[in-house]
Design a protein around this nucleic acid. Structure first.
Length: 691
DNA sequence: AGTTCTCTCA
């Protein structure tokens, strides 16, 4: 029969007398167990005849042990040769039973209120002959930090057991499990008062307690106290301190401890390496992660799943999904069984890098293996689907999540679903999901409203954009740069007659942005210098991660409104402020125009400037390289207007430019020096003729 | 009797 821990008070212990043959109600009342005959000795049981027979008796009656029938029916008072296998089985059984008994006592103690009598009663059931090992086992199996110190005191007061540090160390573990550093520190103080000298175990337990409490600085503080108590840190201390320093953001110290451990030839285990890899990973030193992994193998430490999981996680952070993939292959190749954490790390790595298919493959494998996904993992998958435009897949995952029975959608989930519908222009579905979200008790947040604005904007429902915007203003939600960026994006695709409605939204949302947008929309002719000054003020006021999006939108707006000069001014500013980098690059053999992540208008403007630069270089008699290339990129997002390649093909034709799409390099258009020269030549003569 | 192991974005 399985033991079910009871959660109530000590009184309930007595109701489970079938589990505690030596506990009965009278014993609780008299504070003394009546059955003195059942004694256990935790130290090597003396294999006296009575002893053995009693064990035997206990086992056959209590657990219905499947001994052979004739053994069961045999006289319990037989002598058993202490060296026989039978004796060793009995010894083990005796030990196991004693241990199980003590664990049950620990459970009962945990569920005592802090009523002294209750605690006493439970402890009394153990009898008088308690040895230190019993006390250790009881405390080691307790989890109630309020009761534990009382129990410790009782062991001392009633049985005189308290003289050794081990009892305090196991009690400290309880505080650690309860994340109660204060309690642990108090107990440490009491140890000192009682003249108990702390040892390495004491310190590593307190240190890890601090670490579990998210107080890495405290961990460091305790580590530094060690020498004053005559304790010299050992390999376990170093392992936990490497972690603590890492979490305290003190990467250098963590690594120097590693150096020290290495030079002192301490055996570092795989998990310590995984800790180190994690430290490198969180500090952004991704090559450091890989180096450490190699070093670890060179030391002959076999990587386990934890090491691989940490590495995969680091490669995810590094946005190197291909490396995650090859590490995963290596892991499987070496026969290391992937764990839940492996799949989670892969989903993160692939998801972050928009490797939609790969992320989905991992998801399917998890389903196949019946591994449960968490809300977080579902959300990552859904936002990946949103990023790459997997509408159907997202719906499937969303349904799976709802029917999983283990997790329910949260505001993040709904936000992703609304984003997905918004990107594909499914207004009705987005609105239905919004309703579902409200019904589930979530208020729309800034992310949801941003998506909705995008959704309505895409569908040309400008009045709904304005309505949503007003709703946001009424709410307590504060606008962010991303939201304003989306609003700006709506402006770039709205029909001219609707622009007024939107500019008044922008005026309320962000005055700096309004200053730049208004003259464009109203066609007011202001000086280029002033325009650039206003624009750079805007860029200085917004966060780095949206600068490119703003600049792209503004340039698109200029191009749409046929203000090419303004477009060039903005692109120029964007290059100066390093919002755009590496658009135009030159090597001795190739000059390139890199248009990846540029909006269509920005890309056209950049092409315009680049061709002008080419002409200038040609006029100045500069040597052209053997190859000239334009990279339009190939958008991973299904909704991103199929990349720029299509737009460019026709535009290049219009310009009569001799660039041709490369058959083997997606998104690239190339021309040779000879073709380029001929073309630039003809452009020049054309210009001259026009002049 | 001690350590490190599994979490989110636009």
């Amino acid at each position: 029969m399985a033991y079910r821990p009871c959660a109530s008070t000590a009184a309930s212990v007595s109701n489970e007398t079938h589990l505690f043959p030596f506990i009965s109600r009278p014993s609780l009342l008299q504070l003394r167990p009546p059955q003195r005959t059942l004694k256990f000795h935790s130290q090597k049981p003396l294999l006296s005849i009575t002893q053995v027979s009693l064990q035997e008796h206990t086992f056959t009656t209590n657990s219905g042990d499947a001994d052979s029938p004739d053994e069961k029916s045999s006289n319990p008072y037989v002598w058993v040769n202490p060296k026989s296998p039978r004796a060793s089985i009995l010894r083990k059984k005796s030990h196991d039973f004693r241990y199980a008994t003590l664990v049950k006592v620990a459970d009962s103690l945990d569920s005592c209120g802090s009523v002294e009598e209750d605690i006493m009663s439970v402890l009394d059931t153990l009898g008088d002959e308690i040895v230190e090992q019993d006390a250790v086992i009881v405390l080691n199996n307790m989890s109630n930090a309020e009761i534990a110190p009382l129990v410790l005191d009782y062991f001392q007061d009633r049985f005189g057991i308290s003289g050794r540090v081990v009892l305090y160390n196991v009690t400290l573990k309880i505080y650690r499990n309860c994340k109660d550093l204060n309690g642990a520190e108090n107990l440490f103080g009491r140890m000192l008062e009682r003249g108990i000298k702390p040892d390495n175990v004491t310190f590593s337990t307190i240190i890890s307690c601090a670490r579990h409490c998210n107080l890495p600085d405290k961990a460091v503080e305790w580590f530094e106290k060690m020498p004053s108590f005559g304790c010299e840190p050992d390999d376990v201390t170093y392992s936990v301190m490497i972690d603590a320093y890492g979490r305290a953001g003190n990467v250098d110290v963590a690594l120097s401890l590693y150096d020290r451990a290495r030079s002192e030839k301490w055996r570092l285990d795989a998990i310590t390496f995984s800790t180190l890899i994690r430290i490198y990973g969180t500090s952004g030193n991704f090559d450091g992660c890989l180096n450490l992994y190699e070093e670890m193998k060179a030391f002959g430490v076999r990587p386990n799943a934890t090491v691989y999981n940490t590495l995969l996680d680091a490669m995810g952070r590094a946005k190197r999904p291909w490396q995650a993939k090859s590490i995963y292959r290596e892991m499987v190749g070496k026969g290391v069984e992937p764990t839940w954490g492996t799949y989670a790390a892969l989903i993160r790595a692939y998801g972050k890098a928009r490797y939609g298919e790969d992320a989905l493959a991992v998801y399917r494998e998890m389903r196949e293996k019946q591994l449960e996904l968490t809300v977080v993992l579902y959300n990552i998958l859904l936002s990946t689907c949103a990023d790459v435009g997997f509408t159907d897949e997202a719906l499937e995952i969303f349904e799976d999540m709802k029917s999983s029975g283990t997790c329910t959608p949260d505001s993040w989930t709904f936000a992703s679903m609304i984003t997905i519908y918004s990107c594909s222009g499914q207004v009705k579905e987005a609105e239905a999901t919004l309703t579902e979200m409200l019904e589930a008790g979530f208020e729309p947040n800034i992310f949801v409203l941003t998506s909705l604005i995008q959704c309505y904007g895409k569908a040309g429902l400008i009045d709904d954009v304005v309505r949503t915007f007003d709703r946001l203003l009424e709410s307590k939600i504060t606008l962010d740069d991303r939201f304003c960026g989306c609003l700006l994006n709506v402006v770039t695709r709205a029909p001219k007659e609707e622009l007024g409605k939107l500019t008044s939204c922008i005026e309320k949302a962000n005055p700096n942005l309004s200053t730049v947008v208004k003259p464009l929309v109203n066609g007011v002719n202001i000086k280029g210098e002033i325009f650039k000054k206003d624009a750079s003020e805007l860029f200085n006021s917004i966060s780095n991660d949206v600068k490119k999006a703003y600049c792209n939108c503004l340039i698109d707006l200029c191009v749409n409104l046929n203000q090419l000069e303004r477009a060039c001014e903005l692109l120029d500013l964007g290059l100066t402020l390093e919002i755009y980098t590496d658009i135009m690059s030159r090597t001795p053999t190739q000059w390139s125009l890199n248009l990846k992540s540029l909006s269509p208008g920005t890309a056209l403007t950049a092409l315009h400037i680049w061709i002008n630069d080419l002409s200038k270089a040609f006029e100045n008699g500069e040597e052209l390289p053997s190859l000239l290339g334009i990279n339009t990129g190939h958008g991973k997002h299904k909704f991103s207007e199929k990349g720029l390649a299509g737009v460019f093909q026709s535009h290049l034709k219009e310009l009569n430019a001799p660039f041709h799409e490369a058959p083997d390099k997606a998104g690239w258009f190339f021309t040779t020096k000879i073709a380029a020269t001929t073309w630039l030549e003809s452009r020049r003569s054309h210009d001259v003729a026009a002049a």
